[in-house]
Amino acid sequence: MKRSHWLLILYLLLIIFPVLAAALWGSRMGNSFLWEMGRNCALTGFMLLALQAILAARFQVLERSFGFDILIRFHKHMGVLAVVLLIGHPLLLALGGGGMGLLVNLDLPWYVMAAKLGLLLLIVNVLLSIFSERIRLKFERWRLTHDLLAPAIIVLGFFHSRRVGSDLRIPIVRWYWTVMFVLVLAVFIYHRWIRPWQLSRRPWKVTGVKKEVDRVWTVTLEPPKGQRVFDYLPGQFQFITFHRGRGLPVEEHHWTISSSPARRESVASTIKELGDFTATIGQTKPGDTATVHAPFGRFSYRLRPGERELVFVAGGIGITPLIGMLRHMRDTRADLSVLLIYANRGEGDIAFRQEIDRIAEGEHPRLSVVHLLSKPGDGWSGERGRLDRDRLKRYCQDRFQGRTFYLCGPPPMIDATVTALKELGVADGRIETELFTFL
């Protein structure tokens, strides 16, 4: 069995342990089924919440097995599941014999009111996470709220359960509960405070800021003296916090590494001006410092060494992991065939155009390129329109078997391309995508 399977089993065991232990060693007091369900919802829901801190803490062992984007999606799904269970907890207790007063009365003991507050904060936290984009909540603001609410919810839930949870009178459950509580708080403090502090003590230096095309910049970073660039796979990404002074914002963001790992003196990310923070990226100057946490991601041709024929589909700035892979193939003289389908709005938006042409002139990799423009100018003689099933068929010359597809770009484009590829008979296992947004 793969390590990811073992980790998933461990995850389930950690979550269900309190319920199992309570069922085995707890008292049978003749409660109703709904009451017992309500209690189990709390035991499971709280464990799910506690483990959230570990899922999101960027641990390499988890990241290597699943990929960071997948972990964060899973974290989100589990957050929703925890809310459902923890809303079910008071409802089922009330229906199972506790009475409606449990839900509506406000003159309840502090440990019940603490749980109500915790549940309210949890609902707010999950709603903000799901709808952050729709209500245009800025990433940094959302993250600060998330970082304040999450530990508060855990603390409120912990004290509520220690005071009122009858199953926590079973010694093994009580111990387990306390150990998990201390552990997740420690993980949270490490992830949000200790590790950033450690990283900030060894800052990287900006050595280059280059404009690629309109609103797209490549920032090159050099490791601290005496330190080499970390080992990474082409296509992986890094978390960067720029410290630029001059009143420019200090925020941590993640960007794909667009440089080739075959060149070890520096590392580069190509960044598009998309939001409030990235709008300032062109104001970064050589000599500025940055904190770097890397590498992350499972989107790399190096993870599938047996593949010989690859199709890259890039939408706009989604070219970054793919150019990293093409550069690596060039530098290592890889014996591979690659078809690059590169979609952009206009001709002026095609980043790395000359470099891609030069790679296509060589033999390593054997690269052919299709530029597809949705809004080309009058002088454009190449492909025009949006990538669809018919175009895919034509560009791939109706040959889909034995090829592996790497897609990176805006989510609607990726979703449409995945659907089209499946209709054309490409197996799930041969489609790799990078989930572009994490929230």
């Binding site: 269900i16 069922a23 409660n31 997948i70 599941l81 269970l85 989930l435």
Partner: peptide
Amino acid sequence: MRRTKLNRTTRLVIVAIVVMIVIPALLRIR
């Protein structure tokens, strides 16, 4: 594809958790 695997995993975890909530509750009311 990893996204499909994620959805499958999420479903598996949800089913496992629901089972582990219902069965112990049934055991305890016996």
